[in-house]
Design a protein around this nucleic acid. Structure first.
Lengths: 143, 143
DNA sequence: ATAATTAGTTAGCTAAGCTAATTAACACGC
DNA sequence: GCGTGTTAATTAGCTTAGCTAACTAATTAT
């Protein structure tokens, strides 16, 4: 084992994730939302309301970039900017019901193909995928 | 189980993959190559030489976009454009040795953190990840 | 031989990223 | 409580990456 088993597995997991998302991205058409906006909205929906700064950090983007994305989401009625409770410099940015609905519809479409494929797997394979997902989530939380 | 087990697992896998790649992306600094160029180069390195059309399709991008990216990779000495053997309209685009080396260095850096984490897992967990990666690769190839 | 198609490029636009500079509000230190 | 420094967000202005439309050159089909 030249490179170490851990390295090899890390490579395979990375590669599998890359290819999976690349493939699913093909179904992102319609919904009329660009990838960056859709991703930011997703953070709002699943991570709850937050400041612009935090949202920018979550998306690994600078504040001015996020400022513009949020302005556009707001113009489309998908997010709101309200005053922050404790800090009048800051914003509380939240997804609207319309934003949540749109995102959910897009997610469904995106996951449709994968769901169909997963349905064809054996019970054992399902278990493996579920466990692997749990392990990865844990690693992601570790940092 | 409201949504079906397959659906739920598809969701978890999707979410885990999204978060994993988002996290690893943080280590993409340096190497001086933008994400689209790095990704295109990766396709050339791992998929071998190919036409502009095929490369554009692999990257889910239109021909003019890829034309420019390839021109820039070529200017940086990371890829070459040569005549296609059978079709004088077409190009054979290939990574150079320099391109391969640069990409490999970036990949190593990106995978370093994940490798360290994977090293901390139990033998059983390693096996689960390896199997899950294999299953996903198979699904990806199915289409 | 001519017509239709295909591969790639060029031109010109929009979207999304960045840094630098600005404004307003907060937080200290005295 | 007041000045100094810091922080949150925005604005301005630039670059990169995506698109479509229009073009050239080569291939394929009639």
């Amino acid at each position: 084992m030249k490179k170490g088993e851990a390295h090899q597995i890390a490579e395979r997991v990375h590669s599998a994730a890359l290819r999976l998302l690349r493939r699913l991205r093909r179904y992102d058409f319609a919904m009329g939302l660009s990838a960056p906006k859709s991703s930011a909205l997703s953070v709002l929906v699943f991570g709850g309301p937050q400041t612009l700064k935090d949202l920018a950090a979550a998306e690994q983007v600078r504040a001015p970039t996020m400022s513009r994305l949020v302005a556009e989401l707001e113009a489309d009625g998908l997010a709101t900017k309200t005053e922050h409770a404790n800090d009048r410099r800051a914003l509380k940015i939240a997804a609207t019901a319309k934003g949540r609905a749109l995102l959910e519809a897009g997610r469904e479409r995106r996951l449709e193909v994968l769901t169909k494929q997963v349905e064809g797997l054996s019970a054992d394979e399902l278990k493996v995928l579920a466990r692997a997902a749990a392990i990865l989530v844990r690693l992601n939380e570790e940092g």
